[in-house]
């Protein structure tokens, strides 16, 4: 259970913007164990989202290595990366990113459909997840009929659909009011405790970050060990 899911070794990421090279990440070493809840805080532009994107296998580092369950992700094919994201990871976004023309239930079913979970099983699971998240009565509603908090809970249910090892949340409370922020934060904590899912949470809200068992601070593309706890 406490095996290392993901490890970054001296990773860096550089972008060229207007002919000028910008180092978004500059030698980051991070190990995330199974069941761990880590939050990453830092000012905008400090590289939090870039780090999350690398961990989420959405892009490759310019330098260093990212190991997913001890496999160097640079050596994986696009298809293998797609499969890892589909089956081992769940994503939660600041803007929820639900499929507008799908109901709440269909949004949760979708990743399972892609992963070819049998129809009966996926329907049971989707209903169970939505029920656990207090959305039993909102299953047939489309995203535009849901409140922000409900939308984010649907997105969390979708992220959990394929029973991932790791949940990646990029500013999940960025579009929520303070009450809903507390709800979603508590929910993440509960998921981590009950389901033993590892969570990496990127936020600039200290209160939200405190929900994690470990908080890392990012400054100028580096993890600032001294301020991390």
């Amino acid at each position: 259970m406490n095996d290392i899911i993901i490890e970054t070794k001296n990773v860096s990421k550089a972008f060229t913007i207007g002919g000028e090279e910008i180092k978004a990440l500059n030698g980051v070493d991070l190990k995330v164990a199974g069941g761990e809840f880590i939050s990453i805080i830092g000012p905008s532009g400090s590289g939090k989202t870039t780090l999350l994107n690398l961990i989420g296998l959405l892009e490759q580092p310019s330098g260093g290595t990212v190991l997913f369950q001890e496999r160097d992700v640079a050596k994986l094919s696009e298809r293998e990366l797609d499969n890892l994201r589909l089956n081992k990871m769940g994503f939660i976004f600041q803007t929820f990113n639900l499929m507008a023309n799908f109901t709440a239930l269909e949004n949760v079913l979708f990743p399972m459909e892609i992963a070819r979970v049998p129809e009966k099983e996926r329907l049971e699971r989707a209903k169970e997840l939505l029920g656990n998240l207090g959305l039993s009565k909102r299953m047939r509603h489309k995203p535009k009929e849901l409140s922000a908090g409900e939308s984010q809970r649907v997105a969390i249910a979708r992220a959990l659909a394929n029973e991932p090892l790791l949940l990646l949340a990029d500013e999940p409370t960025g579009n929520l009011d303070s009450t809903t922020t507390r709800e979603i934060t508590a929910l993440l904590q509960q998921l981590n405790e009950e389901y033993k899912i590892a969570i990496i949470l990127v936020t600039h809200d200290i209160q939200v970050a405190r929900a994690a068992s470990r908080t890392l601070q990012m400054v100028d593309g580096r993890l600032d060990i001294s301020h991390s706890q």
Binding site: R79, D82, L86, F91, F93, I114
Partner: peptide, 16 residues
Amino acid sequence: VKEIGTMRAIGIRRSL
């Protein structure tokens, strides 16, 4: 664009 980006992030293949 954003929706399709989300689909790709979730793990849906480019070919699909």
